[in-house]
Design a protein around this nucleic acid. Sequence first.
DNA 1: GTCTATAACCCGATAGAC
DNA 2: GTCTATCGGGTTATAGAC
Lengths: 192, 192
Amino acid sequence: MTAMRLFQEKGYESTSVADILKAAGANSGSLYHFFHTKQDLLLEVLRRYRDGIAPMLLEPAWRGIADPIARVFALLARYREALVASECSYGCPIGNLALELHEPDPPVRQAIATNFDGWVDAIERCYIDASARLPATTDRRALAVFTLSIMEGGVMQARTQRRIEDFDRSVAMLRDFVALLERQAKEQRGTT
Amino acid sequence: MTAMRLFQEKGYESTSVADILKAAGANSGSLYHFFHTKQDLLLEVLRRYRDGIAPMLLEPAWRGIADPIARVFALLARYREALVASECSYGCPIGNLALELHEPDPPVRQAIATNFDGWVDAIERCYIDASARLPATTDRRALAVFTLSIMEGGVMQARTQRRIEDFDRSVAMLRDFVALLERQAKEQRGTT
DNA sequence: GTCTATAACCCGATAGAC
DNA sequence: GTCTATCGGGTTATAGAC
């Protein structure tokens, strides 16, 4: 879908319907036959992102990686690659939309939220799969939400500063935190 | 400045010059006498945010709080208050602009980056002031960048989900991390 | 410096032939 | 289902009187 690429490159508001038609080599009548409004097109794009989380994002990132904690950092490494490949101008398309649309219509906001949920669900599963290595008191869901915060915040800073180091610094601190949690879990297992 | 409020509420692209003129009770000619373009107005708004970090943000947040680590969380609590007061629709105005403008003109991108620098500088100073309680190997600058990532990512999720819990979860995990770092530093002091 | 009027352009969406 | 032409309105910015 051409609209998917343009929304990612230029944002939703800044991409005109004429831009999409020109890039896709289509005509106004055809597009409006399938999508009643530009917002309908956006909703379809968000559905595709949601459906693509597992096959397009997680599966390639996790190929050959079984360790659940390693999987978390393998996914973050994917975002790093995209940042570096675009000289720090690529951003998470969902995060862009989340902050670009200030008062989105309810279905749009819900569709963005669903994308976040899918991402957090996948990471939460990693932490649950690694449960034996984490302290019993650590909330796995909260840790997954935290991980998404770091990814989005790291991408935001790296893009703004045109500097991959800000993303790396954020991920490095998460790595330290997880290492400390694993050490704490080990101690607790030893003392009980 | 009226433009400041509207850019925050509706975003930059979605706020028309006519909106600003109407809200401010001014006329087109007057505004363009002081600002040659809408982007000039944005740059002035970003300058005001930058100059306001200390007097408008840090000083009120830190009044009566001397402990440097407590200051970090007092600042984060300010963003929480703003989120709650707006039913999770307020966001960090700088973060909004950072992701709304996909390929900003260089001076705009630089002005946003300068705002982030000012925020990170202030938090880095907190961690430096708390140096005795942190492990010697922990990079204070990286920890400050990490803290901004968590704030921005937490705000993004809370806004999208219309749920303060996602912000709280992110901050709670940072709290756990800092507590673990303080414990680690204590151990290191004890063993040397 | 502030006013009104408007230029010049771009937007999303539609109409109606084929 | 796809085409071309266009509507009606909103956009930033300017012109020129006061």
